[in-house]
Design a protein around this nucleic acid. Structure first.
Lengths: 352, 352
DNA sequence: CTCAAAATGAGTTGCGTACCTCAAAACGCC
DNA sequence: GGCGTTTTGAGGTACGCAACTCATTTTGAG
């Protein structure tokens, strides 16, 4: 009876800097110096103050700190030019945050540049040095870009790679998915949905030169080879993320191989691939897996031409990038579980 | 050349209340009265001030507002007692937020109570009245509970239902998934993974009396009936979310029906069901779909007994509930896209 | 026009931190 | 023990808003 309801408290701590100063027997100024790694404090005192901060799990009041800084923080998002729908969705979600951003006095600037040209991208990044508190960049993995990122980091700017990573750089964080795992997921889905039926599998990508496409292909082949070896994988087609070209390539392939049972589109151009499938009258019989959720892939899922869309949530990526940059700028821990981008499997019935 | 790089700005606005007051030709006090719906301002003045606030897209500085309130906000999470792993995960993720919470001077209290007894739950909720700024509750849909929620809302407390909704109440928000869609997703997966093979489908739930289970069953049957009518669905078993009981029921069923090709577990007890499958030596041949990602279902997925886990991200639910309560308390708009809980399809290769 | 009620202005205080200055104290070195 | 240097204390200002008081002006009803 008495124990029917129990209570627990998560996080209390209403301590202030003044409390810490009193407990440490020093002045506010000294605590402030320790907290911000400012010089002029004896090592022994630094240790004592830090110990008391740690012992009391003291957290500076974010609101007060933010207010006291005065100036607003500036973040830059370096995104590809051109009509990539996925990138446009990210930009759109940033726009939806504008009220949230301005209520926190955060300035986010969009910088569209040719991220596929390493020297152009590197130059764009160099130009940001010193101007921004944080930079999120859809980056190509190239030595020049890596160097530009490292320069930014050295200059004190927080850097987050978005969608596409540059693991060899010293960027603070990567917001995006593991593309090998995404390719594996695609492979497992194609294989499982095809079932026992023997036949061939077609695979088309934008280009093998794109890191994310290459990784997806790698993961896909890995799974197909090890678990669905009864299925024959046709040589990779390169559709250059273009609808017309993809449609032509797939049409020709379908004509040549009447025994195709599965199809994986690694990159964009899904509409073109779907057209080819429909024209051949094999839209419902061939298992078709593609990437990203757009108005178009949503339609294809609902009408059954597309069986699965593997996607990374662009809204989540946009918001995670902003939150991570903000946490980094505040020297606040990152909620890693929250900022991790999942590989979404979207079928007709779990469309968001 | 000149247009290689373009720039865009998202959200600026560094206006303060003082600016608004000046532009409206009124004093700070009046703007404050308008902003907080305090009495003593002529309707015409209210309109004029509001218009200027709207025209300039003025956003009060969150940090300043938070600092000025003085007192911390108190939120209560009313969760079920007992060893439900999913609920324990939510509580664990709340614990992981503790640094984040205390840096914002937010107090979150866990209140464990018997949420399955309407009168006990209603009493627990009534007891919170006036004590908290916000309440998140895993609620049973029952008239007494509905009334208790409405009382809280009327008392000015923000209320969010968590995992399980009470749509007939006036709760401000629901953080959780659409269980009918989850059931439909399960049905589509079972049907598609089984493929052409004819046979029977087994389905076991905790209880038909639980709203979420009933909804999932409904969605599952909907899809199976309309799209996979060649598959025969066996009568529902009730395992009461208990491993042993579920194992016994499924073992008996497997013995009786050698032609079972698919199995859907609506609730808990997945370990028991898996045991029965393994003992019968049919773990890999029967398509098995269950709910929730735990250490156990993760293991079953990796070893291939379980084919798909349909899950809602407990960490996301915990954080979304806190964020929504905070936004509600601040009278701030909610980023609905962000707070929406997705139905995750988890297979071996996209395990987070 | 009068007068009470309503509306508004002007001002204050405090929230907890960042950042700054200047004086005072403690320290280490010779 | 005296010196310069380093360390520390004390205090102030500012950030933008909430919440309050009190005086003053405006308004509308009679």
């Amino acid at each position: 009876m008495a124990q029917e309801t129990s209570e627990g408290l998560i996080a209390s701590a209403a301590l202030t800097l003044k409390d810490i100063a009193r407990e440490a027997g020093v002045s506010l100024a000294t605590v402030d110096r320790v907290l911000h790694n400012r010089p002029g404090v004896r090592p022994a005192t630094v240790r004592r103050v830090q110990e008391i901060i740690a012992r009391n799990a003291f957290q500076p009041h974010v609101a007060a700190a933010e207010l006291a800084r005065g100036r607003a923080r500036r973040f830059a998002f370096v995104m590809p030019t051109g009509a990539n729908p996925f990138m446009q969705q990210i930009e759109a979600y940033l726009g939806e945050m504008s009220a949230w951003l301005s209520a926190r006095r955060l300035n986010v600037e969009l910088i569209n540049t040719d991220v596929f040209d390493p020297s152009v991208l590197a130059a764009s990044l160099e130009a940001l040095s010193g101007e921004y508190d944080g930079v999120a960049v859809v980056a190509l993995d190239h030595p020049a870009v890596r160097a530009a990122i490292n320069d930014l980091v050295d200059g004190g700017t927080k850097v987050v790679t978005l969608v596409s990573d540059v693991p060899s750089s010293r960027r603070h964080h990567y917001v995006g998915i593991d593309n090998i795992a995404a390719g594996r997921t695609a492979g497992a889905l194609v294989g499982r949905l095809v079932g026992q039926k023997p036949g061939r599998i077609a695979i088309i990508a934008g280009s093998q030169g794109l890191r994310d496409h290459a990784e997806r292909i790698f993961g896909f082949n890995q799974v197909m080879g090890s678990e669905f070896s009864h299925l024959d994988i046709l040589p990779l087609l390169e559709g250059r993320d273009d609808d017309d070209r993809s449609e032509q390539l797939i049409s020709r392939l379908l004509g040549k191989h009447p025994d195709i049972v599965g199809l994986y589109n690694v990159g964009a151009g899904t509409q073109g691939v779907a057209n080819a499938l429909t024209e051949a009258g094999r839209g419902k019989e061939i298992v078709f897996v593609a990437h990203d959720l757009t108005a178009m892939t949503r339609r294809l899922l609902l009408q059954g031409t597309l069986d699965v869309a593997i996607s990374q949530n662009p809204g989540h990526e946009a918001r995670a990038a902003v939150r991570v940059l903000l946490s980094l700028a505040r020297n606040e821990p990152i909620l890693s579980e929250q900022e991790k981008i999942r590989i979404d499997i979207l079928m007709r019935d779990n469309l968001p």
